[in-house]
Structure formats: structure tokens, C-alpha cells
Design a protein around this nucleic acid. Sequence first.
RNA 1: GGCCCUAUCGACUAAUGGUUAGGUCACCACUCUUUCAAGGUGGUAGUACGGGUUCGAAUCCCGUUAGGGUCACCA
Length: 488
Amino acid sequence: MSVRVRFAPSPTGYLHVGGLRTALYNYFFARKHNGSLVLRIEDTDRTRYVEGAVENLIRTLTWAGIEFDEGPHIGGPHAPYFQSQRLDIYKKHAELLVEKGWAYYAFDSPEELEEARQKSPHHEFKYDRNKMKNQFTIGWGKSLELISQGVPYVIRLKVPDNEEIRFYDIIRGEIIVNSKDVDDQVLLKSDGYPTYHLANVVDDHLMEITHIIRGEEWLPSVPKHILLYKAFGWEVPKLAHLPLLLNKDKTKLSKRQGDVAVEDYIAKGYFRDAFVNFIALLGWNPSADREIYSIDELIQKFELEKVNKSGAIFDVVKLEAINSKYLYSKPIEELAKEFKIWVEKRGYSGYSEDYLRQVVGLLRERVKKLPDIIDFAPYMFERPKQFDLEYFNKHWNPSTKEHLKNILNLFLSTDDFTHTKLHDLVVEYLNSKSLKLKDVVHPLRLAITGLSYGAGIFETLEVLGKKEVVERLEYFIDKVLPELSKES
RNA sequence: GGCCCUAUCGACUAAUGGUUAGGUCACCACUCUUUCAAGGUGGUAGUACGGGUUCGAAUCCCGUUAGGGUCACCA
């Protein structure tokens, strides 16, 4: 039987990075085994539905390079892929369970349940089917009567009193839970919608899912699902519960402690392949002394059996390190094209791709993300408005102004504005004065960029071009210098 | 609190009974240098604890401790 896996998010707004990793592992697993990947939307909670969330989810998944074989956006043999469009299926199955004696009707109001919950300390409340209002306490006939009168009801799973439930998880091994610790879960809500547990089990079976790969937070509800499969007489798919992605304090990754939406990272300028690379290696790795992998390599090397058991802290520093490696190794033309979009987004226009290519080439190894270049070297896009006073004080002496003027004249005298030529001209001049390169390089950098750091100054001059450099130097000497001298 | 899961450098992880416990990020030092980076070289740092099993344990078993998840008519 061929592998069929699914990614089944609920449309509550955006794709969580943990969700992305789950989707990625499902995708890797499906591709590696020439199987199918299904996208199913678990929108059974009407109160949490967010407009546009599904489109957003699909857009982000697509950005990450994940391709589905079936789903709401492409259809497939098991459509519809929205659970909200499969209500009759769940209802039919819930009623089948009542018929078989595996489930029962209950009529407790939310208020009554809340009251019962309040009475028990901590979280010790468990639905007592012998005391609450249901078909066992009020009788079968009375129950049918209430239902026919339109009284709201739910269908609950009738969990055995004291029975060992065993299941095997590919990542965690055998797990045993006693049914006495399992609550009589609601399967069908009073609004006619199924709960996650029912819908999930029914759909995974109907859609012929062979492996369930999902987050560890689902592990505690597996016993309920096992009971459901047994009640229906269905085979349980293979299970794999992934370790959680954690905050720095080791709690489940949450919005409070940083960005959890994939789109936040897209907006910050991380590369798709770098981000996927990073996320994929949280909880699993191919056991080699390297960490840069293409998506194809990740697919080839992926093994569910090698996924870790313990949670992984999401560390942005590591993400930045990986991203910067991609930044350093990607083709410069590709970067220039992408960089243009970022530059324009910042309101700078009119730069040729050739100019941007040179800027990227000069600065990419100094930053972590492509758009960071703009903040790191704003002087490539506009003339400096501020000048680092500390830097000025550190490198200025009474004769520096004279040297700068002379260097300006040297620049004016040449039409060969390459960094090697500029370097040679300056060195020649310095030799005649018995000075060192560092005596003038810093003042020059300050005049041109306003900053104490950046790419090699002669390379920077070359990229900026003669006209721009000359104008900046003249402006600095005439206008800025008097002001700085006053302040220092 | 009940139930369940987990435990290797600060972080991500490798080592599936035999290694001086390895790599990457971060950090530190040195080097290169025209600033900032990048690069190069080197370094600090880990098997939570206690018992077993075994000739031999990070690895298997038990316990302790710690952390996490979960206990809805949410998913």
C-alpha cells in the first residue's frame, strides 16, 4: 500500500513555525516514499474561523516549497477537503457508534458541565455517565423524545471503565494508558459539528491515510482515537508524534516570546531555502557533520525513525547563521534581483541591477539577511546626514583636512575610478608624506559614509562612482567639517 | 493535582554496549587587516542525580529530580 500522509491545520489565522515543520516532515516523508500528501482543513470550530486564513495558509506553504497532491485548492478523489463540508459524514458515523453501543446521547448544558467542573478540585473532573444527564440516566425512550423535540444534545464516546489501551509510536515506542484515565469525549457537538477527535479519525480513515505525523501535543488524546478506530473496526494508521518547538524558557513556542508566524520571518527577509533548512533540522538531522541541505537532500535523507524525542528550542541566532551562509553562497545575480524588491520596498528607486549587484557583492558577508544591507550601508542609497562624532575625534588631527583636500584633487584628476587605481593613488600620495594608509582611510570613510564601519573604502568609492564621491567629499569639507570641529 | 512524554556543551545535535564523547551556532583568544565583517588557527564548555545489569553504560533496567505536554460542545 502506498504511503498517504496529511497536513491538517485549522484556519485560525497564520501558519505557525511548528506547523511548518510538521508540514515539512509530512512532505519529506511523502516524497521520499513516492506517496501522497493531502491538505485537509480542520475548520470544525465555527467560533474560531478567520476570514482568509486558508488562502494565507496555502500561500505560506507554497512559499516554503511544499507541494500537495490533494487539497481544497487542487481537489482530489476524497473531496471535499474542508471538514465543515463533511458534516453529514461525521453525523452518520457518530450515530453508527451510538447504534453499536460505543457512544451515547447526552443532554447536559454547558452551564451544568461548568458547574460540575467547579465542584471538583484542580482538573480532576471526569464526565460521570451515571450521574449526568444522558441516555443512561434518563432512558433511551426519553432521550429520543428530547431529540425529536429539538432539545440540544451531544454524542459522547463511551469509554471502557478499566482497560489497557496500547499503541505504538514510531518516534516514542510503545505507550500504554488505562482507559480509566480517559474521559467520555464529546464526538458530535450540539451545533452538529464534530469535535477534532471524531472528524480526524473518520477523515484519516476515509482518506486512506497511512501515517499520522503531527505534534506531540496530540499524544495525550491518542487513546481516544485508538478507541474510535476499534469501535469502527478500522485499522489504526502508523503514528509519529513530533517533539515540540520551544521558547528559550523551554515552554511551547508562543507568540508572547517572539515571532511564531512563518510570514513574520518571510517579512524579515529570511530566504525560503535557509528557513526551511533551519526548521527541518529542529528535531531531526541526517547525522552528518554538516548542516546545509537543499530540500531535495532533506527529502532523500529523511527518516521518521531518526526524529528526536525531546523538544527543540527555536533559536533565531542559529537561523541567522544559516541564512547568512545562504546569503554568502547564492548566485549574485539572483540576489541582486531579490535585493531590488527590498530596496524599492524601502522607497529607493532608480537603481540599476548592476549597481545593486555590486552593493550586494560588497556587503553580503557583513550581514545576516539580504534586506539588512540597507540598514547596514544606507550610504549606498543616500548621502549621510549624520556623522559619527566619536569616530571623527578618534581619527582627526590638524593636518587631516589638508590631506583630504589633496586626495579629493587626486580623485578629480583621474578617470580610472577603480578601487585598485584609487588605492594606488592614495598610497602614492601617502608615501610622499611618509604617512600610513590608516592615517587617511578613516577620515575618508567618515566623509563618504558617515559611519565607522562598512566594506572596503576603495571598493565603496568605486561602486558609488566619481561624481558622487567628489560631491560628497566637497560637501563634507565645506559644510560638515566646520560643524564637527565645533562639536568635538 | 491525574495521566503521558522527555533529559548529551549556553543552543541545535552526533555517537543505536567499547570514541581522548564528535560537529555546527554562540562565546573567548590569536591571526589576517583599511574600519566592520568574512576567512584561518586554537580554546572554554556536556552525558541531571542515585542505584543496578555487564568484562565494559551517554547508550539497557529501576528509582529520584527537573522540564514539558495534556486534562473543553478548541484544534
